[in-house]
């Protein structure tokens, strides 16, 4: 039951994000555009590049989609409305997101094209940059909740949302999340200008559709994870829980999508340097601060 509800919600969410992205990129708010372009993609001819690594080529998009879905599986929409309320939910989310990297490398390697390859390797660099900034803030969140279960994490924010409790962690997490979903300005693997689509370059037709769908799922997953970890999840007055989650998720996604194009694109080296020199320092400080606060103020 809850599975169906959440899949449905996810589908709606993906569509909404697609609309938002269209808006952010093209500056025009069109509700039908995603549907038409999806149909167009399905109808377009499919080219299978000359490659000896068909397995990677085919598996890349699928794995990406699976990774996205599995990360959504541990996000609660409302109390009890969750696919699997794992005791180690936050860790599982983290693990599932790690496959984004694997999927993109496979997708970049598979087609035997230079642009895709470079895109994949670039994403590896990007991964090295963002990965710690996903893990460390989540640790701080778990410290407050005394649990890795996402439901518990939401409940722990009853008195005060984590965004206020650990703002550093929030900022770091959002930036890292944008890295995971290769959103601008950190969209190196598909880097519009210089890589002719990067990992997407060799994908056509239905495979490209799956690839794009997977990315939407990942954006939703990350936005909802941000909501769960920092914005109190379903908590909120007046409206029912699921509505709060949905609204907040869309809000976060919109913010992420709108923010990116307005910033200059970040080179991978710069991103790496920033996240290791500044980001990790801040993340460690965040853990320490949360530790001190959690001992002093019992909320």
């Amino acid at each position: 039951m809850s599975i169906a509800v959440i899949i449905l919600a996810l589908a709606i969410g993906c569509y909404a994000v697609a609309v938002l992205e269209g808006w952010a990129v093209h500056g025009r708010l069109s509700l039908t555009r995603p549907a038409t372009s999806a149909l167009a993609l399905l109808g377009r001819e499919q080219i299978l590049p000359r490659t000896s690594d068909r397995l990677f080529f085919e598996a890349g998009p699928v794995l990406l989609l699976v990774a996205g879905l599995l990360s959504v599986a541990v996000i609660p929409l409302a109390p009890g409305l969750i696919i699997t309320d794992l005791a180690i939910g936050a860790l599982f989310l983290n693990a599932a997101l790690a496959y984004v990297l694997v999927a993109l490398i496979m997708a970049g390697w598979g087609p035997n094209g230079a642009y895709g390859m470079i895109g994949g390797w670039r994403f590896l660099g990007q991964f090295v940059a963002y990965a710690m900034l996903i893990v460390m803030p989540i640790t701080a969140v778990a410290m407050r909740a005394e649990s890795l279960s996402t439901t518990q994490i939401v409940l722990s924010q009853a008195a005060l949302w984590n965004v206020a409790y650990q703002p550093i962690g929030f900022v770091l997490f959002v930036i890292a999340a944008m890295g995971v979903a290769w959103l601008p300005p950190i969209d190196l693997p598909t880097g519009g200008g210089d890589l002719a689509g990067g990992v997407e370059a060799e994908y056509t037709g239905a495979r490209l559709a799956v690839l794009r769908l997977a990315r939407l799922v990942i954006i939703v997953a990350l936005a909802s994870a941000t909501v769960t970890f920092y914005l109190g999840g379903w908590l909120g007055p007046w409206l029912p829980g699921w509505a709060w989650t949905a609204l907040k998720t869309l809000g976060v996604a919109a913010a992420m999508l709108m923010l990116g194009p307005r910033l200059p694109r970040l080179r991978e080296a710069k991103y790496l340097e920033l996240s290791w020199k500044l980001g990790i320092t801040l993340a460690l400080a965040n853990i320490f601060l949360v530790g001190v606060i959690a001992l002093v103020v019992p909320i």
């Binding site: 860790l91 640790t139 410290m143 407050r144 005394e146 649990s147 890795l148 959690a294």
Partner: peptide, 9 residues
């Protein structure tokens, strides 16, 4: 750190 975080408080 994960096991530690859970029992931190």
């Amino acid at each position: 750190m994960y096991p530690w975080a859970v029992v931190y408080r």
